[in-house]
Amino acid sequence: MKITVKLFATLRTGRFKAESREYAPGTTVAGVARELNIPREELALILINGRSAEPDSELSDGDTLSLFPPVGGG
């Protein structure tokens, strides 16, 4: 299945900003993070199609997955 993966802030270092990537059905967010060598502690905020998700959330074909390290401000 095709997933658009978007990375932000420090997660881009040595990786990419946004890519359309191919994954096996049933892949979870944690699976994508593992494949991209993103350590668990750097993965603070997960959005699937703009809605909050968890590391064990399963992805569906056509999803947009956005991954953030800890961010804040105001």
């Binding site: 959005l47 703009g50 956005s66 390290p69 800890p70 804040g72």
Partner: peptide, 25 residues
């Protein structure tokens, strides 16, 4: 040691929020 005040804000300033707020619509 906090990810926001120790890493995110020092590296990108408050503008680090632009993308996360936009991604949430």
């Amino acid at each position: 040691e906090n990810g926001v005040t120790g890493e995110g804000l020092p590296a990108y300033g408050t503008a680090i929020l632009v993308n996360i707020i936009n991604e949430n619509g």
